[in-house]
Amino acid sequence: MLEIGSVKKSYGDGAARVPVLRGVSLELGAGQTLALTGESGSGKSTLLHIAAGLEAPDSGAVRVLGQDLTAMDDSARATFRRTEIALVFQQFNLIPSLSVAANISFQAALSGRVDQPYIDRLVQALGLADHMKKYPEALSGGQQQRVAIARALAAKPKLMLADEPTGNLDEQTADAVLDQMLELVSLSDASLLVVTHSPKIAARMGRTLHLAGGQVV
């Protein structure tokens, strides 16, 4: 599903150049879950962005569903991301001017694959049914996070990438949201890569990789 080989990435120029990833490799098979852990600044989020095709690596290979993301142009990468990958951001990244209902179906609608009964089931499962007509600003952080998860799952991705998906939630809500996410991912047979600081969340994943100093340790 996801193959990352010897990926390197640095930021800045000249003397100010800071290496963030120093040859990271990983593999994630279909239906598998993986936690990426590490200190702040260890390169977790950068690796996630590279896996999603949001950023290009300086060198190395990134293959999703057998396709080399680094060989694609911006437009092809965007199309691939729209149809095969879903992202859950730490800051939710909902569209503030769209209602909760429109936000949830947004990515699915972009790729022309709105499965309304499936979305209705997701909404019920994530406890969002009473909030569908509201706008994101009227929701709590936990509710917004659930909308972001619903949006990602509604697109029926083959690969789901989540950056601290429960980082803004209290422990109880975080557990509930994670339960729902894992259940829904397993139902759709998608792969899940989660970036987290939390050992508890990492323990719920099939595998854990720890990043330190830009390398898998």
Binding site: S75, A78, T79, R81, L87, F89, I95, F106, L110, S111
Partner: peptide
């Protein structure tokens, strides 16, 4: 800006 970033990251090509 936020909306544009989100829409792009959800897979809408820049030129579209």
């Amino acid at each position: 800006r936020g909306m544009i970033r989100t829409i792009r990251s959800l897979g809408v090509p820049l030129r579209v």
